[in-house]
Simulated scan of single mutants.
Amino acid sequence: METPVLRGLARWLFLLMLLFSLYLFYRGHNLPGGGFIGGLVAASGFHIYALAFGVGRARALLRLHPTELAVLGTSIALLAGLLALGRGAPFLTGFWTELLGQKLGTPLLFDVGVYLGVVGAVLSVLWAQEEEVRAG
């Protein structure tokens, strides 16, 4: 579906969707949203780019293979839970620290892992299907 209109809009849609996904991610700590929905929006942006320019160019833009990204995200989310176990608390108990006047905690680390895991998992499926359709 590589049309001139889609190619013209894809870069802008990609950037807007990535920015919106980061907004949803940030907003999700205190309101609806967070890593899951932010990851879905980011994956949609990457997929629109892939539809316009091909999966190869989209993979180059992502820099990591989607499967590697999913594993990285899952590992980060798991790390957030294991940090609590290391301090003698139940799995996924939240801990916070202050850095440069900002409160940072393990829930944020978990959300980052979910975000990356969702982007990687969704793109793995979508891009595998896209490559199969183009090859078939």
Rank of each mutant, 00 (worst) to 15 (best):
M1H: 13
M1D: 11
M1L: 13
P4H: 14
P4M: 14
V5M: 13
V5T: 15
L6Q: 12
R7V: 09
R7E: 14
R7C: 10
L9W: 13
A10Q: 10
R11Q: 15
W12T: 15
W12S: 14
L13C: 13
L13I: 14
F14Y: 12
L15D: 07
L16H: 12
M17G: 12
L22Q: 12
R27K: 13
R27V: 14
H29Y: 14
H29V: 15
N30I: 14
N30A: 15
P32A: 05
G35E: 01
A43P: 02
A43R: 01
G45E: 09
F46D: 05
F46T: 07
I48N: 12
L51M: 15
L51F: 11
L51K: 15
F53L: 10
R59L: 15
A60C: 08
L61R: 14
L61M: 15
L62G: 06
L64I: 02
P66Q: 00
P66M: 05
P66V: 02
E68W: 00
L69R: 04
A70D: 04
A70R: 01
A70Y: 01
L72K: 00
G73Y: 04
G73N: 04
T74P: 00
S75V: 12
S75H: 05
S75E: 02
S75N: 03
I76Q: 07
A77W: 06
G81T: 06
L85D: 06
G86C: 11
G86E: 07
A89R: 14
F91Q: 08
F91M: 13
F91D: 08
W96D: 06
T97K: 11
T97L: 15
L99N: 07
L99M: 13
L100S: 08
L100D: 03
G101M: 07
Q102H: 14
Q102P: 05
L104W: 04
G105K: 07
T106K: 03
V112T: 04
G113M: 02
Y115N: 07
Y115Q: 02
L116R: 03
G117T: 04
V118S: 03
V118F: 02
V118I: 08
V119L: 03
V119D: 03
G120S: 04
A121H: 02
V122R: 01
V122I: 06
L123D: 05
V125A: 04
W127P: 03
A128S: 09
A128K: 05
E130Y: 02
E131T: 06
V133R: 12
V133T: 08
G136K: 11
